[in-house]
Design a protein around this nucleic acid. Structure first.
Lengths: 258, 258
DNA sequence: CTTATAATATCATAAATTAATATAAAAAAC
DNA sequence: GTTTTTTATATTAATTTATGATATTATAAG
């Protein structure tokens, strides 16, 4: 419609899009970089970047005149995380689960076609990136994504699979949509998802969904382990029951019918 | 100046102020709540709240028509945290430090007159709130705040103390500015800060600053322990050397002169 | 040193935001 | 259950703000 949507504040969207640009970058960005990444005119990029800096959400390197995300973004995360009841309840249980075989254990949710990790209980060897909550990855490549999607209504499953951009991470990444659908069906029948070499060639991942009172999944418990320390058979024997038990205990605590 | 600052986008500020309102709330907020908390006209509150919802940063409860922070805020935090080199380097060292006496160990930075926790390595008994990065607290009440401030230039120290709103948390919270200045001087001479019963009546906190190559502090390593499991004397004997060693090792890794 | 690129600053215009107001829905009081 | 109050939603003319073209300055690259 040509007429303005008077309830939508496009300037706010633009500012947030500038912030979002930084999440895919490692290095600091100049005004021109931001203009390119957002598609904005350079004076638009200048105004929004300068405003975010003045509000404290971006840092500016005086020498290079480049910008980087500010710690003030952690404030916004806290806004969400201090109300995250699932993470609060899950935390001690994930810690217990992690002790069993000395593994990392993560809690994650489906957000669009991605998985976001909301609580990471890393083991000693976990890389820094793997310890960060807020990390995103495409759901269809992940055991945890597959097992959440497997416990959604079939129209939603089709919609998510249809909307997903399929990304190949390794030689073994399953990218065929039919094979992905079979993988989803398999997770539904087993009650958990398992994947090997989907995101990195040495990773084996197992996950079980957390279900609400209607049997619909929105979150999962996941354990990543690595070859050659673990093989598929041992993961299936030892870790699958562990994620299942942990997820089920969370489902019962949160959503049991009274 | 009456004339417009044409480089500043006030609409973006307003939108971010709406988000910021939620960080001090536990319960969901309606349009009227947001209008009150921000001072905006209710149609302004409506437009910005609706826009944040449409962009995915707020969730809306259809039944109550109230809003809450969305997990998408974790995206923004990740934007910051995946570039946090100090946290990346510090993480294994804080884990090691925590093993010594089975305590939580935190990394924090000064932000304005507050401390923000950027990395929390909780022990088994840590409360959920204490496990959350992004959490803020007033610097002058905290051993970690005091010890960072103690290693700033004296003009900055005066400015921070002057700008701080003094909050009393317990009967023992030091609120007298002269006493606070003595506490800062004490932290400077000892090289670490220590506090008992400042934030909660049973807490003892000890922290050491991380210094850059000029000897200026911007971050600290902190250990919180609780009475009656710990007393001041044992904290001073056992935990103060531990935070000092950990902080010094980080200072050397990050900022040693070549 | 010169040229190219990026950043910064300015301003007339178009577009967006404001807040007053009307209407609808829900909550609270009776 | 009804009435009143409060909150939410929707609309719009007036006012303010954001846009992008352009000029200027600064820095990087050759």
């Amino acid at each position: 419609m040509g007429q303005q949507d008077t309830l939508f504040v496009a300037s706010l969207e633009k500012g947030l899009r500038v912030l979002e640009v930084f999440r895919n970058q490692r290095e600091n960005l100049g005004i021109t970089d931001i203009a390119h990444a957002t598609g904005f005119d350079k004076s638009t990029a200048q105004r929004f970047t300068t405003t975010l800096h003045r509000l404290g959400y971006l840092n500016r390197d005086e020498r290079t005149r480049r910008y980087s995300p500010s710690i003030r973004l952690m404030d916004l995360a806290f806004t969400y995380s201090h109300q995250d009841r699932l993470a609060e309840i899950a935390r001690p249980r994930l810690i217990e689960a992690g002790k069993r075989y000395n593994t990392s254990v993560n809690l994650c949710v489906l957000e669009g076609t991605d998985i976001i990790y909301t609580l990471c209980i890393p083991n000693q060897t976990a890389s820094f990136m793997m310890t960060l909550s807020g990390r995103r990855a495409p759901a269809l490549c992940l055991a945890e994504g597959i097992c959440i999607i497997a416990f959604r209504r079939s129209d939603e499953i089709k919609a998510i699979v249809g909307a997903s951009e399929i990304t190949r991470f390794t030689e073994d990444t399953i990218i065929n949509r039919s094979a992905i659908m079979r993988r989803i069906a398999d997770a539904h029948s087993k009650g958990y998802g398992i994947g090997k070499g989907q995101i990195s060639s040495d990773e084996i991942s197992v996950a079980a969904p957390i279900l609400d009172s209607t049997g619909v999944a929105f979150a999962a418990v996941q354990i990543p382990v690595f070859q050659p320390n673990w093989n598929l058979s041992d993961v299936e024997s030892n870790l699958a029951p562990l994620v299942l038990d942990t997820a089920r205990s969370l489902s019962r605590t949160l959503y049991r019918t009274t």
